[in-house]
Structure formats: structure tokens, C-alpha cells
């Protein structure tokens, strides 16, 4: 069993390095293609040609593109992702100040979403075609159909401005009490949950239905096992793989896809950092952010696959 997992991890790491290399080239080419550069972004409306040329030279942007890329790559391989071009802070420091925030938001949302989504998904699969199934389906589809920024803004107007239950902004530094913590995260987690719960629930339902249709479950039913027992002991272990996959994909969305929530609630996460970096053409920072999103995606998928292997007796004993 452990051999399978070890082999999987090793091959995944090799693939991840390849993928990251490819992504870094793509990102570099992307930032090069973008019109304007960091010197123009810094100077803004004051960007006269000579001022831009002077600043470019000062930032070493006048070197050829491939040299800059390899300089950056060399730095990264020796453990230094470089410094931000716009504010000269170490990229590692900028990331370190945002990554925990993003992870925190993702974790809290996951804790809220995953149980709700899995329960709803499994129940509507078991009772598929019932009124419950239809209602749950209709509700989730409707929620997903509302633009996220509309949900966020509406939530703020209702719960923060009118009712004053929660703050409209979600940034707090330092140690805060549990009560404060709950209030701060309430609205952003609610907004993210609206979208995520719906998707995860539908994916869970699909995976469950798939398994329930399979021959060994039918066999169990024929043997006369009670429906709930069939679901819990026979079907559920076999759906762990696909469900873990679904959860992993949803969580990877939470890191980079939370941009609208981060903007509306002024939450200092990684997504906003990347948006800033793109708009100021701050190449080292863009690279670092994208690398993190990419690694997180690959890592979560790997975890899901491992979960799938461990839960599947046939794969486990190979």
C-alpha cells in the first residue's frame, strides 16, 4: 500500500516541477506581452519618455528579457524569489504577510461548506427524484446563478448596513477574540459558501449516484441491506475518491478565486496581491503568486488521489 502512495507522490512531484517550469515561462511571456511596464506603472500620469528610461535603467529593466528570466529563475532556485519591483520589499515577505490570511479564509470556508455540501449531496443522491432532491437542486442552481459580487454587496447591505450584525470589512490584525473572529469572517465566508456549497453538493450527488448504480451496490440491495446501511458501508467508501477530488478542486478555488470577496470585504489575501502585481507589472511578485496557486492546485489534487487510493481496497492492495 505505502509503495503505491510513495510512487504516486514521487511521480506527482516530478510532474509538478515540470508544470511549474512551464507555468513560469508562460507567466513571464505573459507579463512581457502586457503593454506597459513597471516603470510606467510607477510614474503613472507623470511618465515622460526620459523619466521612464531613467527608471527602467535603475530597475535593470533595460536588460534583455531572457537574461531577466534566468536571473529570476536562478534566484528562485537558490531560495530567493527576489524583490518586488514597485516597492522593493522582498517578495517572500509580501507573500508571508498574505498567505496565512488566504489559508485562514479557505480553511474557515471549508469547515463550513464541506459538511453541508456532503450531507446535502449524499441525501439528495439517496433520495434522488424526491421533492427534497428537486428543491435542493433548484436552490443551489439559483444561488450559483447570481453573480458573486452581487451576493457580496447584498450581504453587506443587509447584514452590515441595515441589521448591523456583522462588520462590512473583514480585516483585523493581531489576536482577536473568538466572538470577533466569528463576526469578521461571517460575511466573506457566507459569500464564498453560497457558490462553493452548491458546486460541491452537485459533484457529491453525481459521484454518489454513480456509485449507487454500480453492480456491487445493487448486489447489496438485493441481499436486503437497509438503504442507509448500503449508502454508509458500501457506497460511501467508494465515493471518497471522486468526492475528495471535488473538495480539492473547490479548495484550490478558494485561494485564487476569492478575488471578488477579497476586494469587497477588503480582505488582504493572495488574490488581491496578484491583481496588484499584474496591474503594476511587478514580474517577480506575479510569478510568486502564480507559483503558489499552481502548487496548491497540484498538491490538493495529489492529496485527493491519495485519499482515493487509500479508500479503494482494490487500488490499496496493488
Amino acid at each position: 500500500m505505502s509503495m503505491v502512495v510513495v510512487r504516486l507522490v514521487l511521480s506527482r512531484i516530478a510532474i509538478a516541477i515540470l508544470t511549474l517550469g512551464f507555468v513560469s515561462v508562460a507567466v513571464f511571456v505573459g507579463t512581457e506581452i502586457l503593454p506597459g511596464d513597471v516603470a510606467e506603472a510607477i510614474l503613472g500620469q507623470g511618465a515622460t519618455p526620459e523619466a521612464v528610461a531613467g527608471l527602467r535603467a535603475a530597475l535593470h529593466l533595460d536588460q534583455p528579457a531572457h537574461i531577466r528570466y534566468f536571473l529570476w529563475l536562478g534566484g528562485l532556485l537558490s531560495g530567493d524569489p527576489g524583490r518586488s519591483l514597485v516597492n522593493n520589499l522582498p517578495v517572500a515577505e509580501l507573500i508571508a504577510s498574505r498567505l496565512p490570511n488566504s489559508l485562514m479564509l479557505a480553511a474557515v470556508t471549508a469547515v463550513v461548506c464541506v459538511p453541508i455540501a456532503l450531507t446535502l449531496g449524499i441525501l439528495s443522491a439517496v433520495w434522488r427524484g424526491s421533492l427534497f432532491d428537486r428543491a435542493a437542486n433548484f436552490l443551489t442552481t439559483s444561488i450559483v446563478a447570481v453573480p458573486e459580487f452581487l451576493i457580496a454587496t447584498l450581504a453587506v447591505i443587509v447584514f452590515a448596513v441595515r441589521l448591523r450584525w456583522f462588520p462590512a470589512l473583514s480585516y483585523a490584525a493581531g489576536i482577536i477574540s473568538l466572538d470577533q473572529f466569528f463576526r469578521l469572517f461571517a460575511l466573506p465566508v457566507f459569500t464564498l459558501s453560497c457558490v462553493l456549497t452548491a458546486w460541491m453538493m452537485r459533484m457529491t450527488r453525481a459521484a454518489m449516484i454513480d456509485t449507487l448504480r454500480s453492480s456491487y451496490v445493487e448486489m447489496a440491495v438485493l441481499k436486503g441491506a437497509r438503504p442507509m446501511r448500503v449508502v454508509l458501508t458500501h457506497a460511501l467508501p467508494n465515493t471518497i475518491g471522486p468526492i475528495a477530488n471535488a473538495v480539492a478542486l473547490s479548495l484550490s478555488y478558494l485561494l485564487g478565486g476569492a478575488i471578488i470577496v477579497e476586494i469587497v470585504f477588503n480582505y488582504p489575501g493572495l488574490a488581491r496581491l496578484l491583481v496588484d502585481a499584474v496591474s503594476t507589472r511587478d514580474m517577480p511578485l506575479v510569478q510568486a503568486c502564480v507559483m503558489i496557486f499552481c502548487s496548491a492546485y497540484l498538491y490538493l489534487l495529489m492529496l485527493a488521489d491519495i485519499a482515493g487510493i487509500l479508500s479503494n481496497p482494490r487500488l490499496r492492495h496493488r
Binding site: T153, A168, I263, V264, F265, N266
Partner: peptide, 19 residues
């Protein structure tokens, strides 16, 4: 002092008493 780029969010933050 901080920034909120989204105008409705900024106005809501004032009206909710957060800023």
C-alpha cells in the same frame, strides 16, 4: 488608513460604521 477600491463597498463600510 487603507484602501477599498470598490466604491459600493467603500460607501457601505461608512454606512455600517466600520470607517
Amino acid at each position: 488608513l487603507f484602501g477599498i477600491a470598490d466604491e459600493p463597498a467603500r460607501v457601505n463600510a461608512l454606512l455600517s460604521g466600520d470607517v
